[in-house]
Design a protein around this nucleic acid. Structure first.
Lengths: 240, 240
DNA sequence: CGGAAACTTTGATCTGGATCAAATCGCGAT
DNA sequence: ATCGCGATTTGATCCAGATCAAAGTTTCCG
């Protein structure tokens, strides 16, 4: 058993696929019942505290996972410490980079989370055996690519205020089902993490949040809890 | 024959797959010879002048293509005209968004180019029939995703000088095979396009180019031709 | 309950890159 | 050649967001 496997698998518990939230997700939804049973035998549930790393940048990882609960951030850091969040993933997304062992980014739990971990070798074999699974993962990759490009527009061309509004919109959209126009959610990210996602400083993020609050677009309770009375209003801040 | 098809296919000539540069590319390299023959029968070569659009943002496209020659840019524009280049593709890359007809970005020739155009329906059918092709396209999508995330770091966290150096490095790397340390190439992008790739203005791009020139990292001939005497030097400007 | 550490907000000032303005260059057309 | 136009460079000034500094808040642990 290699290091990564022992690290990750030790803390886990056996999985019960039948009642799992990710049963119809990207990976498990594309498996036959015999494949699902096999994957289940080699998978473990694991809790991950907010802030703890799942896969380190530059390391070789021998496992993939599904997010069962919580939010996971994908992060790139430069040698001098500057860093940029390059993706956020929500349950029941798949996490991992098929076909390449060495990770070019670090994967870290943003909130207290739960993941379902399974061996890379096993899934790789299943990918080559199950076209449906390949297709499903291909589809997730393309969606992530669309999202990354959308975010490139935000990073390159939007103002600080538009950036913050974009982030709130992104999270509101992925968070719990909203009522007609109003939404409320807990931010899965600290101000520092928001800054790292938006290419800003934490002071600028804070100032723009209070601007949005003072202009009535959002209400803020206890730093982390956000209420958007009117999503259309928020969308207008983004100008597309 | 729908509009997009007639527009694109009319100007083309028949293809000769046997001697094609993209014969072993992402798409054609993954096909059986009978599939290749069938795809070839329905494909056409087409010249595209620099600046002309291949697929418009928001439009439905009924075809995919392979880049035979030249450089293609993927671009997002906002309603108010701000725009951001979100990807550059080089021969023999595949161009198109499998599984989704409507394009969220515009695809445009950056240089005079040549593409090989084939019907979406046909390739979609082949994807579902040929796991090897699915795998190959999945792989390209993941590579584009890696590239997009690398660029997010550049957009969010690098200075103007680092951004320009990053772009030169990117192009040098994808351009012609370099000698040991020195490289020379023609920029496929105007200053305005570089600005749209880097999230800067054209004045800032120009200033940073002359800074790099004055510091001896690059030489510039005729605006577009760049000589990098020492690639290591250029890499040092990027700080990773 | 107290107190320290971490996180967030707010204020003052600075600066990298934007904006505004004007040469300069190169190239195709006359 | 010369004109004219688009692309690029260069210069002067401005400003959005960074940086520096300090004061709340919240949490959590003894």
């Amino acid at each position: 058993m290699d290091v990564a496997r022992s690290e990750v698998f030790d803390a886990g518990t056996l999985v019960a696929c039948r009642s799992c939230q990710a049963r119809h997700g990207v990976v498990c939804g594309a498996l036959s019942s015999s494949q699902l049973r096999e994957l289940g035998r080699h998978s473990l549930r694991r809790k991950v505290d907010a802030g703890s790393e799942i896969i380190a940048q530059g390391s070789e990882s021998s496992f993939y996972s599904n997010i069962m609960r919580g939010v996971v951030k994908l992060c790139k850091v430069m040698p001098d410490g500057r860093q940029q969040i390059v993706g956020l993933q929500f349950a029941p997304d798949f996490v991992g980079r098929p076909f390449v062992r060495e990770s070019t980014l670090s994967t870290e739990a943003a909130t207290n989370s739960e993941i379902c971990v399974f061996p890379r070798n096993l899934l790789d074999r299943m990918i080559s055996e199950a076209p449906e699974l390949q297709r499903s993962l291909h589809d997730q990759a393309l969606k992530e690519l669309d999202a990354a490009r959308e975010w490139m527009l935000t990073l390159g061309r939007r103002t600080a205020e538009e950036k913050v509004a974009s982030l709130l919109h992104l999270i509101a959209t992925h968070a719990e089902p909203q009522t007609a126009t109003s939404t409320a959610f807990d931010l899965p990210l600290s101000r520092a993490e928001i800054a790292d996602f938006l290419g800003l400083t934490i002071e600028t993020v804070s100032r723009q949040m209070t601007r949005l609050r003072k202009s009535g677009v959002i209400r803020i309770e206890n730093f982390r809890h956000i209420i958007v009375p009117d999503m259309d209003e928020l969308e207008r801040m983004i100008s597309a």
